[in-house]
Each structure stands twice: as C-alpha cells, then as structure tokens.
Design a protein around this nucleic acid. Structure first.
Length: 573
RNA sequence: GCCCCUGUAGUUCAGUGGAUAGAACAAGUCACUCCUAACGACUAAACGGAAGUUCGACUCUUCCCGGGGGCACCA
C-alpha cells in the first residue's frame, strides 16, 4: 500500500511539473519523500512528508502544496483508503478503509506460517556463523547473548527469503586449551572427566601458567604437542576433552533452540591460515621480532601478530583461514559472522588482510558485533572463573518460575516443560529487546521478572489468544470471514498487525532483532488492552466474527514473531 | 596517548532530519464474582554540555565532559 501511494504521488508530481509553471523547477531535481507508518493513531495509518520536502524548492507553503497533491489524489477514488487529510505543518495522512483491513486480516489467516515472509533476499544464499564456542571453556552468558541474537538474526534472514545455512566455528586449538589439558593431567582427571571438571581445570591451568614457572614450561610443551597433533598421553586427554566439550556444546545449543548445518574447527583453519600468511609474506605480511605480523597501521588500523614466534597461527590467522575454507566449501552471496564487540577492531584487520588477498572475500563477508554484558544488582554466582555460566542462569530463572506456578494445577512433566520454555524465553527476550550492538546491563531481577516488557509477557499473550480460540471452538463459533463491516471502530491492534512484515525487514536491515521484539511487545500490550475491554467469545457481540478473525490473525502474528525471536510458544502457562 | 563504539525519566531501554520524545520496572492512585491478574486504567518523571549545518536536530558536523572496547605473539 505504501508503495502504491508513493508511486501515485510521484506520478502526480511529474504531471504537475510539466503542466504547472511554478512546479517546473522540480523537473531535473532529485528529491526523496516518504510514505511511512503514521507514528500515532491520531495521524491516520500512513503519512507522507512529501509536501514539506517540496515546499522549500517550490517556495510555497507546505500545507498549500499538500492540498494540491491531495486534490489530485482524490480525483480517482481508491476503496482501500477511507480518508485523506492534510495537517499542519504539511503532512498528508491516509486512513485505511474497514474493508481494506478486513481483507488484509483474511490474507494473514490464509498465509498462516508464511505471514511476515518477505522476498527482499529472494534468490540470495547466506551462511551465518554464530555461537562459536571455546571448547574446554564453559559456555557462559556471553555465549548466551551471541546465541540469542545470532539465532534470531539467522531466522529473520530466512524469513526475508534467503537460502541460509548456519555454521559454528569451535575453537579446538589454543594456548588456553593446553593449560586445561595440563591441569587435567596434573589432577589425574582423565579417568573420570566431566564437563564440570574441564571447566575447573581451565581455571587452575590459567592460574598455574601465571604463577608457576615449571608448569608454564610444561604447558608450552603441551601446546606444541597439540598444535603438531603428536600422539601422546596429552593428545589423548585432549581428544577425550574435545569430544566431551563438543557434546556439551551441542546439548546446550539445542536446548536453546539452535542446530548447525556445519562446523569448521579452528585447528583446521589454523593450518590453512598459517599457509596463507606465509604465502603472502613479505607482500602483505611482514616479519617482526620472530613473528609474522600484518602491518595494519599502513591502513589506518594497527599492527598485530598473525603467526607467533613459535610458528603457530593466532586467532587472526585462524579467521583468515576460515575465510578461505568458507569460500571453498560453500556457495553463497553473503557470509555473516557475529561476535562480541571486543573483536570489532580485530575483524577490521582480518577483513583488510583478506581483501588484499582476494577482493571477493571482503566483499561478501560481513562481521557484526553484539554488545557486552555487565552486571548490576544481585550478582549471579559463578562456579568457574568470573563469568556466570549460561546453564546456571537458566536454572536459577527456572526456580523462580516454579515458585510462581505453585498454585496452578499442572502435572510435574508439564510444569517442567513450561518452566523451561518460560525461563529461556525470559533470558532471550531480555537480550533481544535492546539494540544488538549495544552493551547490556544484566540485572538479574529485571532479566528474570515476568512482568511488563518481558518474554513471558509475550508468551502469556499467546496463551490468552490460544485460550480464546479454544473457547470459541468449544462454543462452536466458526472463524470465517465476514464481509459485513465492523459496527464499532477498528481497534488499534488490528491496524498494528499489518506492520509485522515491515518489522522483520527492518530487523534484517539493521541487523538487530530488537525492532521485532519491541513491536511484538507493543502488539501484545495492545491486545491485552483490547482483551480487557472486549469480551471476544460473545455470541451477542455484533462484531463477533470480526473479533474472531482478528484473534486468529493475532495468534498467527505472535506465533510467527516468537519463532523469529527464538522463543518457544506455549499453549498454557 | 592514538583509534572505534556509546551517553534519553530514579533504573533498564525505544525513538527512518519533521506533528505533543515512547515504553517497562520502581513510586503513587484505581480497578479485579467476567475468554488464565505472568492482566488492565490512571498520575508524576528525561534528550551530558557548548557551538554549527537546516525552514526544522534526540537524530548530521566539530569541540568538551562521562562510560565501554581495541592498540604484538590470548580468543
């Protein structure tokens, strides 16, 4: 509809610039105007600033310009538009007709799971890399942020029509891993290795490396063994730990709702990256103090080591190797990688170095960042290191939900399943509701509160929608289109539904699901008001059929929306 | 020190150069025998500072102040 109106207005301006003397100035000039969603119900449904954009050029009063355009617009009537008005300082506001809205609602119900789909990325192939774990290190809440945003963006990109594959890049080789292997061996834990013990070993290995000279030497030796893949006791510990860490990674990411189409390991990328660096020295890289560095300072960045003086690739070389591996293994138009902001500058380096080797690599690769977490209020205890583990946080939230559900009669299994979905939903939503690149202040009380702008609020709205529809079914009220116009005013929530696809696209173009999250919250909130005012399942209500259609369309919108955020949908809670 | 990001109610966040800067939580008030109150209605409360560009700036530019990140062998 926006496009239709915009084109009509364009046509009018073109005609006027040919017929009217005073409009001739516009002829060759480039100007851009908008037909956008009205920001408030009072301003209609769509609004255009075209008159204000033109007024300056025409040296005419914006309102007068608006009136001329509206006059032309009204020459042929459109059944979809009920009213067009001009308002100071020069806006043109459009109001949808009831008929148009009823038709749109019907389309949504027909589209069902496809509602919200767009084709802005049709025919495009994407690979999306997120949730890359450090094997041998615990999956902490930083990973939770990466996973929540990454998973949601991946789903949004798919919804925009792209053919998308997901990828994760587990770190399975690094000095940190050597420290962990050393500690496992030292403690004799290889016989009874657990994921918990691996986490503890990482912490004590790191400490020993700093404080104990002898340990440092042994660890450096182990590091070499691991990089060179030498058969040894340490290598066996490593393999066992790697498998266990990887299984754990799969378990936790599946619990969060993610599955990966493929994994590329850092060890593989390391050897590839190292070769690349060596091959391009001294043309692109240079030797310095026994290491090979990329002279980023030549390009306004900074110098950093790609291959260290021991001859091992640092993570910069690994990411370079990964670039080559991606292009070798996958066919795609765009590759997106999401990492923590602390890596922002480093990826500029990788991208610059990559572009010097192969222009296509940099052109088709995009590196985006999510914000960091900090804490306020109650501290979440951490069993390992100083960052709380994702699992501990989820479980802590679950406890609060169990407490809240005490009075309700759910079977233990049902209770468990609801608590799990609500807990993960609460955490994910608290991450997704603010801009993806912004730092998040993680307040335990707020992140786990179930009131207001929260995941559970959205899930609860859906539960209510489902419940209303169930009641309607039991009362044998059919959901069917009714061409009779609504007797009452169109509720705001009905108009808001139409914005859903726009929010999906906006979330994609800003690479941030928060637009969708905020929209779904506003939609749910508006529905809650409607629900409080209107008894929907009421055979005596003249708008019964319209209300049932609306409820169904809302259910579809919220279901599809929650799916895109990666929140689980619930029948009851 | 240099580079990048950021600064909106008490708090946590929204806000395509345009119409009265929106929410949520906390505070205060009300409602609640009715499709699940994890709900609804209402009140009070904010653009870090200074210049500039513009018909018009929270939004763009510059400077200052505050917060975060990066700057050589960790990722």
């Amino acid at each position: 509809m926006r496009e239709i109106l915009k084109n009509k207005i364009k046509q009018i301006i073109q005609d006027l610039s040919q017929s009217e003397e005073s409009w001739r100035v516009l002829n060759s000039e480039d100007f851009s105007f908008e037909v956008s969603l009205a920001r408030d119900e009072k301003f209609g449904d769509l609004a255009s600033n075209v008159a204000m954009v033109l007024a300056g050029r025409l040296r005419q009063n914006p309102l007068a310009v608006a009136k001329i355009i509206v006059e032309k617009l009204q020459e042929e009537s459109d059944p979809r538009i009920a009213k067009i008005e001009t308002v100071l300082p020069g806006y043109i506001n459009f109001y949808f007709s009831k008929k148009y809205l009823a038709e749109e609602i019907e389309k949504i119900i027909k589209a069902e799971g496809n509602w919200g789909k767009s084709d802005i990325l049709a025919e495009k192939r994407y690979i999306f890399e997120h949730s890359s774990p450090n094997l041998f290190k615990p999956f902490h809440i930083g990973h939770l942020v990466n996973n929540s945003i990454g998973e949601s963006l991946a789903r949004i990109i798919k919804k925009c029509g792209a053919d998308l594959q997901t990828l994760s890049f587990p770190s399975d080789i690094s000095p940190g891993i050597a420290k962990t292997v050393w500690a496992i061996k030292e403690k004799g834990w290889q016989k009874e290795m657990t994921i918990e013990r691996i986490g503890q070993a990482y912490v004590s290995g790191v400490a020993a490396y700093k404080e104990d000279e002898a340990a440092k030497k042994e660890i450096d030796k182990i590091n070499e063994i691991l990089y060179k893949k030498e058969k040894s006791e340490e290598w066996e510990i490593y393999e066992q730990g790697k498998k266990m860490s990887l299984d754990y990674f799969k378990t936790i990411t599946e619990r969060l709702g993610s599955r990966f189409d493929d994994l590329i390991f850092e060890s593989e990328a390391e050897s590839r990256g190292k070769e690349l660096v060596k091959k391009n020295t001294p043309e692109i890289f240079t030797e310095s103090a026994g290491a090979i560095i990329f002279p980023g300072s030549k390009y306004g960045l900074f110098d950093n080591v790609f291959v260290n003086s021991q001859g091992f690739g640092t993570y910069l070389a690994k990411d370079l190797g990964l670039l080559e591996l991606k292009f070798e293994r996958f066919k795609f138009d765009n590759s997106v990688t999401i990492t923590d902001v602390e890596q922002r500058e480093h990826f500029k380096l990788v991208q610059k170095a990559g572009s010097l080797m192969n222009g296509e690599w940099a052109e088709k690769s995009e590196f985006i960042q999510h914000g960091r977490l900090s804490f306020s209020g109650e501290k979440i205890s951490s069993r390992l290191g100083n960052v709380p583990l994702a699992e501990d946080l989820i479980n802590k939230v679950k406890e609060k939900i169990f407490a809240k559900m005490e009075q309700q009669n759910f079977s233990p299994a049902e209770k468990e399943s609801i608590a799990e979905k609500v807990a993960i939903g609460a955490l994910k939503y608290s991450i997704l509701k603010s801009g993806a690149g912004k730092n998040i202040v993680f307040d335990f009380e707020k992140a786990t509160s179930f009131e207001g702008d929260t995941g559970p609020y959205l899930q609860y709205a859906l539960v209510r929608l489902n419940s209303v529809l169930k009641n309607a079914k039991e009362a044998q009220l059919e959901i069917e289109p009714d061409l009779k116009e609504r007797a009452s005013e169109i509720p705001l929530v009905e108009k808001m539904i139409l914005q859903f696809p726009l929010m999906v696209e906006k979330s994609f173009s800003d690479r941030s699901p928060h637009h969708l999250a905020n929209y779904l919250f506003k939609l749910s909130s508006e529905f809650s008001s409607f629900y409080a005012q209107t008894k929907i399942v009421d055979a005596a209500n003249p708008d019964l059929k319209n209300n049932l259609m609306l409820t169904k369309a809302l259910q579809i919108t919220l279901e599809n929306g929650l799916e895109l955020l990666g929140l689980e949908r619930l029948e009851r809670m």
